[in-house]
Simulated scan of single mutants.
Amino acid sequence: MLTAEAGTSRIKVTQKTGPSSGRAAQGLAPVDPQWKPPACWYEPVATPEQLKAGVDKLKQGGDLVRVTPSLSWGEELMVEHYEKGGQRSGGEAGYENFNLGEDGHFWRGVINPANRTDLDAYECERTLFWQAAGSVPDDAHAPTPDILAAYAYDKIKVPDTKVELKPATRSTVNLPTWVWLDKGDFAEVQVRAELPGTGLWAETTAKPVGLHLEPGTGDAETHPASGECVISKDGSIGTPYAKGTSQPPPPCGITYLRATSGTPYPLKAAVTWAISWQGSGGTGGDLPDGTFETTQDITVQEIQSINR
């Protein structure tokens, strides 16, 4: 663990509900383009025994020890500061014999891989430091339930759901195309993130709340006019087409007003997911909505008539 990259986190992620392993799934795009998960935080990385073993290996010509997101220390500094108790140049006190016999962990900074190019990712630059068991650092970058919730947000995978259409791929001018999503494919997704040894955890839940349609052309009318199809009480969106229900317009659908001419219309269907979380210590709240968008090609034909 001591020689792992600074982007390697000990946070344990578990998908509690959502797409099965046999189904395609995709991540969400936050509706708020300014929102981003935390760039870095501190985590426990080694017990006294593990740190000693790492330094002993270093003495024998092993790898450098990764101490912070951007710094690796060699044998001299590791032995002087963590084994012999030498004080750092900045005044930070050293540790006698790696704090062997003490109950706790040495902590270090971890970079969120999703924000590796963010300058904020290099703010967790404290040298490898001691923290007693059952406590977290008094630091602005200490792990918290809301950090875990945001980390879990980035791990949410929603079903790669293709909307049902009738007609399926070939519509007719001025006749509505019905659109719907079955409740069986459109259920909430929950991801749990927990940091071992700290008692910190958070469960982030993505709940589908609606479907937005973009016909792919200005020569079309959406139903409803806003293009926003809301979720029904039973968890479905829209109404499946049934023979003889082409009129009136569907609760969720599109009426194309002009036929395609060689190039299909790209129908975009974006599902909106409301994101909430709850965590250790009675914490909880909301995170920005997420969206997942799919595009389907639609061919529109003219109504054929026979002249006698």
Rank of each mutant, 00 (worst) to 15 (best):
C124K: 00
A25I: 01
A152Y: 06
P69T: 08
W273M: 05
V55D: 02
G238Y: 13
Q87Y: 08
V300D: 09
D56I: 00
E214D: 15
A29I: 12
P215H: 12
K233H: 10
D146W: 11
S72H: 09
G90S: 03
R116G: 08
L51T: 03
T68Q: 03
D103Y: 04
R170K: 09
D154W: 06
V67G: 01
K166Y: 15
G22T: 02
Y95P: 00
D185C: 00
H81P: 01
A150C: 01
I147C: 00
P137H: 13
G199E: 15
G281M: 08
K243V: 14
Q278V: 04
T239S: 14
E188S: 15
P48M: 06
Y256M: 02
I231H: 03
R10T: 08
D297Q: 07
T260Q: 10
Q301G: 00
L165S: 05
E228R: 04
R108S: 11
A53D: 11
Q34M: 03
D297V: 00
W180G: 00
L119M: 01
K155S: 07
E221R: 02
K207C: 05
K52W: 06
G199L: 14
V209I: 14
G244H: 10
Q87K: 04
N307T: 06
A274C: 02
S246F: 08
E302M: 01
W178C: 06
S246C: 02
F186Y: 07
S280N: 05
H212F: 15
P113I: 13
H212V: 12
A274H: 09
D63P: 01
G74S: 07
C252V: 05
P240M: 12
G282F: 13
D154F: 04
K84G: 05
A152E: 07
T263E: 15
G279P: 02
